[in-house]
Design a protein around this nucleic acid. Structure first.
Lengths: 280, 280
DNA sequence: CGGTATCGATACCCGCCGGGTATGGGTGCC
DNA sequence: GGCACCCATACCCGGCGGGTATCGATACCG
């Protein structure tokens, strides 16, 4: 299988529409149809069921979509890491959520920079999906938050575990409660909804938000309420009240990196991070 | 980057010889040279240093070789799993070392087959490198032995841990000792050597063996001595003596599978295996 | 020291394949 | 029943991948 075929198939499988997929790929529709048909013929497998009105994935197609995304990510990673290896100035790229764990991040960077033999660290801030740049090679190491982000296929070390709190305006009816449960918050009409991995929002009521700053602003305006890790309330609490949510899942901050990584700089950073975490 | 380019580069990087690599790929040497040069040009990176007498990998080339092998393995895996998904008769492929853990394997297969909703299991026996078919998609799940086989990038559950024993003819001078140390055995001239991952043998004295049956036969003939996990002596011990080796690393049998696996059948098999291991 | 064998690079040609436009055919909607 | 939408087919063209022939460099050997 050629990567061109795989890229084309992933585009069609994601769009479920040959015309839009072709446009996204910057080619015309007929060659795309032909390439997909060739791919199916070579594999000896039907990947898509197409009527003239609707395109749908077969079970095999869904499998290839999932596996193929991983392959394309690994390919992009190989390319980027090869280029990085060619520069004799080594450099680590660390991915982190822009909203989360700002203080931990600063301390980690300082502690690592003080290490003898340390290497420049570039920080890649993501609004969400911090694990993605790790899989496609844009980052060498990332700070992830379980259980919100998947860590399968990655090597990880736990840095920090914390409970979650409900964040709301001080004037909110629930603000005076000593503690809350998840159901108390999610049943509210102003409970916030986060996008799924594909950019769509889950069904149901509530505000649609894309980033932590957006969410905090909406809470300040009295338009939203959310359950968030304790650490976020360390920053912006003017006019806001936080109430512990006793049955919310614990949030674990982990440092994660791709398997097979054999870089001295990465090993140092992980060692600093874990040692640092135990001191805290 | 196209997979064709990657396949070509991996071949050259492994052979370190354009002519042999071209032969292996079934093409002539000039197009191969040209394709590698194009790849280097597109990446903007030198992958190989070539004189007219010697070809060597640059640091970037070594990186691309390692990452590229993983990508090609993932691609083969995607292809195989897609074909498998197209057959409505699901089937699990389990890889195991032909010599090792035969009894555990039989019990596991029986226990899983008795499970309601279980699926046919095909067993793929390997002489060594049981993890390879897992990475290139020929197997869905494997029994691996740490620390002999790498498990990075795989999800694992521990099944069994055991010590190691020295296996030798009953007439051997060391056979009467109550216990041994690793150095006692490896210093012997008849210590066996296993091939490296690439098929070459490490330097030094001692017999070169490729498989467990071959090794046991050589031991029976008085031509070899080896340090092996306890379980192997459960089978062939006629005329052989086993002596515990106190400082040999513990051998852990694990069941391993690729991350992201979401198959019901695989989850069942792992559950059976781990539950089964605790009973033992 | 010159002859030679080895090995990668270059030059050049050809056939195939990937991509383009034009068009057909099937299906749901008004 | 007309129409719009959308995937498939037909056909042409240019570029690229692969072939043969050959060059140039280097290590080895007599």
């Amino acid at each position: 299988m050629e990567t061109r075929e795989l890229r084309y198939f992933v585009a069609v499988a994601e769009e479920l529409h040959f015309g839009r997929a072709a446009e996204r790929l910057g080619i015309a529709q007929p060659p795309l149809s032909r390439t997909i048909a060739q791919l199916e013929h070579r594999l000896g497998v039907a990947l898509l069921t197409r009527t003239s009105r609707r395109v749908a994935l077969t079970h095999a197609g869904a499998t290839l979509l999932e596996e193929g995304r991983a392959v394309l990510g690994a390919l992009a990673a190989a390319e980027r890491r090869t280029r990085q290896a060619a520069t004799d100035r080594p450099c680590l790229v660390l991915a982190a959520k822009s909203g989360g764990s700002g203080e931990v991040l600063a301390k980690l960077l300082d502690a690592y920079a003080a290490e003898p033999g340390s290497v420049p660290v570039e920080v890649l801030l993501c609004e969400s999906n911090t694990h993605v740049p790790l899989l496609d090679g844009r980052a060498d190491v990332a700070l992830l938050h379980e259980p919100y982000e998947p860590t399968t296929g990655l090597d990880t070390e736990v840095l920090h575990t914390e409970g979650q709190v409900a964040v709301m305006p001080s004037a909110h009816p629930l603000a005076s409660r000593p503690r809350l449960r998840v159901a108390d918050v999610t049943s509210l009409p102003e409970a916030a909804r986060w996008p799924n991995g594909d950019g769509t929002y889950p069904d149901g009521p509530g505000l649609q938000v894309r980033s932590m700053t957006q969410l905090l602003q909406m809470i300040s305006l009295g338009r939203a309420v959310a359950v968030l890790p304790e650490a976020v309330c360390a920053e912006k609490t003017e006019g806001l009240t936080t109430v512990p949510v006793v049955d919310a899942p614990l949030v674990t901050t982990v440092i994660a990196w791709p398997p097979h990584s054999r870089s001295r700089a990465l090993a140092d950073l992980v060692r600093i991070a874990t040692g640092f975490a135990q001191v805290t």
